[in-house]
Simulated scan of single mutants.
Amino acid sequence: MEQFDQQVKSLTGILFLFLLLIVFFFGGLFYLANNPETATSIVEQEQESEGTYKAIENGIHLDTGFVVDEGMEATIQNCTNCHSAKLVTQNRMSREGWEATIRWMQDTQNLWDLGNNEELILSYLAKNYAPTAKGRRQNLDQTEWYTLE
């Protein structure tokens, strides 16, 4: 008899959770049906997160810091799944350097095969994040020196 009581209590608990889920589900639908502006803002947020890159200022994608150019979207989609965009934008490499880095990530970090996107991503990175020749700073030309007191 005691075992039967435990089974009834378990079934009652499961039934209660099921009813609670139904109430939340239909309550959410009722709320969205009566508040269309909320439903619209949810759809807009989903569209932004699914690859609409609207936040661009002065040729820079504000969310990632990537230079806006052909291949930016593919680079964002393939690189920022695993690491920060900053890890890409702080580096400067030749095309061969970027390709070697991608191979290293594929061999050791489980990066997937980029397929047709690889050429697009490599071209984007080699063009926008290539090494810059900075060299040493220029000599100071000031001939009059003074002493700080």
Rank of each mutant, 00 (worst) to 15 (best):
F4I: 13
F4S: 15
F4A: 15
Q6K: 15
K9S: 12
L11N: 12
L15T: 11
F18G: 09
L19G: 15
V23S: 09
F25P: 00
G27N: 08
G27Q: 06
L32Q: 04
A33G: 03
P36N: 07
P36S: 08
T40W: 12
S41H: 01
S41P: 00
E46C: 00
Q47C: 03
S49I: 07
G51A: 05
T52Y: 14
Y53S: 06
D63A: 11
D63I: 05
G65C: 03
G65Q: 10
F66Q: 02
V67C: 08
G71P: 05
G71T: 02
G71R: 03
E73R: 05
E73Q: 10
A74M: 09
T75W: 01
I76S: 01
I76V: 15
Q77G: 09
N78K: 09
C79M: 12
T80Q: 12
N81K: 10
C82L: 10
K86Q: 15
K86D: 15
L87F: 06
Q90F: 08
N91T: 03
R95T: 01
G97K: 09
G97W: 04
E99F: 05
A100H: 10
A100P: 00
A100C: 07
I102N: 02
I102T: 06
W104E: 14
M105I: 08
Q106C: 07
Q109C: 06
L111W: 10
W112G: 06
W112V: 05
I121K: 03
L122Y: 03
L122I: 02
S123R: 10
S123G: 07
L125A: 01
K127R: 12
N128S: 04
A130H: 07
T132A: 09
T132M: 11
A133L: 04
K134C: 01
G135E: 07
G135W: 12
R136Q: 11
R136G: 06
Q138V: 08
Q138W: 09
L140F: 13
D141N: 13
D141T: 15
Q142V: 14
T143P: 00
T143R: 12
Y146F: 13
